[in-house]
Design a binder for these strands. Structure first.
Lengths: 340, 340
DNA sequence: AAATTTTATGCAAACGTTTGAATTATTGGA
DNA sequence: TCCAATAATTCAAACGTTTGCATAAAATTT
């Protein structure tokens, strides 16, 4: 009796009912009498019954599991988004299955396949920096499994819903802020343009330069993956000979921090001689001296909107066509601090 | 034909084999001929077959899902641990299901129940600050589902494996470091003692005071939850009238940062007039001016050890009795920086 | 060539739940 | 009192795998 985990069959036997009735009672089916429902639920409690979601998923073809594929759990933006996503999904009775790609396309493929095998009811994806071919997600489309991309999304058309921050606007605002603060020359640390984030922020940068009639110099724009190591190499390059750029717009906060520390070590006065703007409002930017001006992306909002979109699709509230046509763009905000 | 997702039945039909043979072939059963295996696998590829893990889980009673219950994904330590955990589990073919308690006991109960219902093959838990009654995990014990606590673990005996950093030693090292640096009076921001972390760090603090023959003053010890807000209140209290404490050991980095910023605003010279040690090596501590001395907990190591322990239990490599008797304690390290 | 062992495959039940259709019990109306 | 309508319950199949046991085919021994 220790061995055996209780099932609806046990409940049925105990109450001399059929399993069908028990199943319906537990699911609050309208045709079951109130009295029976109560009896069944009491017996279920007494037996410590818990629905076997495998069995019910197999029969009913839903698992209540939502998959999430993400580059790295520990990056600030994503960690904050996950928090919001998980909280919201739990309210709706869904579990969240997380897979990390570590920004490797191959891993992304494996995870997509694993998520599909485990029959997630929906999938949320922030892709790697390098994913340009999204065909490993086709199987979700073909099988009509709701699919939502957020933050890191396909650049070319792909028939799935997209939720992202307004990176173009963010890039524009960051650059414009530097321009308005008087920078005549603004360098830009971008990431690989294969990623929509950097592509859009870069576009914003370019347009802001144009608007404020500032020169574009290709020696002052970089497209390496924005690791601390790369940022340091770039910083060395930027400040090897004068004139130095008067402003730096870094497309993530990690590299903004590296540049700031390097410039500080060079005794450059910030913001007097050099102004810096980062991206993401990483908690570190508020704490470093001087604090770094940056773009807030509201990761919790992005996460919540992504979940909301997924749920809408799952509930059929949104027509398939509409999903695909209209990316959802969430607002960003310039956080003014001492560095610019 | 769009409608229908392929199953082993389809493969069997296509090849004129029985489903049993197909199943065995896919699982590399020794009694299936090499030729058949190849045929089956080719056909499986051709049909884009993917095992239905619900069905196989239902029948075979394993799901390849591991549950993780954690206070908040976005806290540095936990985010880093999750990264390690997920990476390691994926290598073994497991999926990770994450639930966040937001440090609420009620949520922890709900999640434990949900994880059980979805038949995770094992569960990893970092409990809330306030969990003292762990009976909502009993169902895992009773059903013999591997259960591992890490970081935030039961204080009283509970029959499950435990993996944690050496908090006593960390508390001792932090305090001793301040003492050796010349602090005659050392305040301590602890968290609630219902949590093993704070209890052990506090014990280390006490013992270090004793060893260095420093006075213990109860006005200089605090047991509130270590939020920024609470830390600020405490800082105000600490520095309301002289003599100020010469050293502060904060049991997490967030509160160390708040204290440092408050003291800096008061124009206290750090480390000359006030020395500060935090706990966890949060990335912010390296970046603030002056950088904060802290205790590194190696979250990735903790995560990996926790997974290793879980896998050992699942593979039966470790006798049940041994699991429970011996908590696994991982080393911590003092990171010396400018603040002390 | 028959008997025996070995190797490969098939049969059918089982896992726990859900659900359309069928059946039984209850109620109300004439 | 009987019939019809409604409410409550049951039957049985289905979801896609896995697996013990039985069987068939091939290889080996006598």
């Amino acid at each position: 009796m220790q061995k055996h985990e209780s099932t609806i069959v046990d409940i049925a036997k105990a109450l001399n009912l059929s399993v069908a009735t028990v199943s319906r009672a537990l699911n609050d089916h309208p045709k079951i009498s109130a009295a029976t429902k109560i009896k069944v639920k009491e017996q279920a409690n007494a037996l410590e019954y818990r629905r076997n979601t495998l069995a019910s998923g197999l029969r009913g073809s839903r698992t209540n599991n939502i998959g999430l594929i993400i580059p790295r759990v520990s990056m600030y933006f994503h960690a904050a988004a996950i928090t919001a996503i998980q909280n919201k999904l739990h309210l709706q009775g869904y579990n969240l299955i997380i897979g990390q790609t570590n920004d490797a396309v191959e891993m992304e493929k494996q995870l997509a396949s694993a998520m599909f095998s485990s029959r997630v009811d929906g999938l949320m994806v922030a892709s790697t920096f390098y994913t340009t071919d999204f065909s490993h997600f086709d199987v979700f489309i073909r099988n009509n499994i709701p699919l939502v991309f957020f933050d890191r999304v396909p650049i070319d058309f792909y028939p799935a819903q997209v939720i992202k921050g307004d990176d173009y606007q963010g890039g524009f605002m960051a650059t414009a802020h530097l321009a308005k603060a008087g920078c005549k020359t603004i360098a830009h640390l971008s990431g690989p343009l294969s990623c929509n984030l950097y592509k859009d922020r870069y576009a914003g940068y370019i347009d802001a330069l144009r608007k404020y009639k500032l020169p574009f110099k290709k020696e002052w724009v970089f497209f390496n993956e924005l690791t601390p190591e790369n940022a340091l190499l770039i910083a060395k390059q930027l400040f090897v000979k004068k004139p130095y750029p008067q402003g730096v717009f870094a497309s993530n906060d990690t590299s903004a921090i590296v540049v700031l520390e390097y410039a500080r070590a060079l005794q450059l006065r910030i913001p007097a001689e050099l102004k810096i703007v980062g991206y993401s409002n990483d908690p570190r930017t508020a704490i470093i001296t001087p604090a770094i001006t940056t773009i807030e992306q509201f990761p919790d909002k992005v996460g919540e909107r992504a979940v909301a979109a997924l749920l809408e699709i799952m509930n059929g509230a949104r027509r398939k066509k509409d999903q695909v046509q209209t990316p959802i763009i969430t607002a960003v905000e310039l956080i003014r601090r001492a560095s610019a």
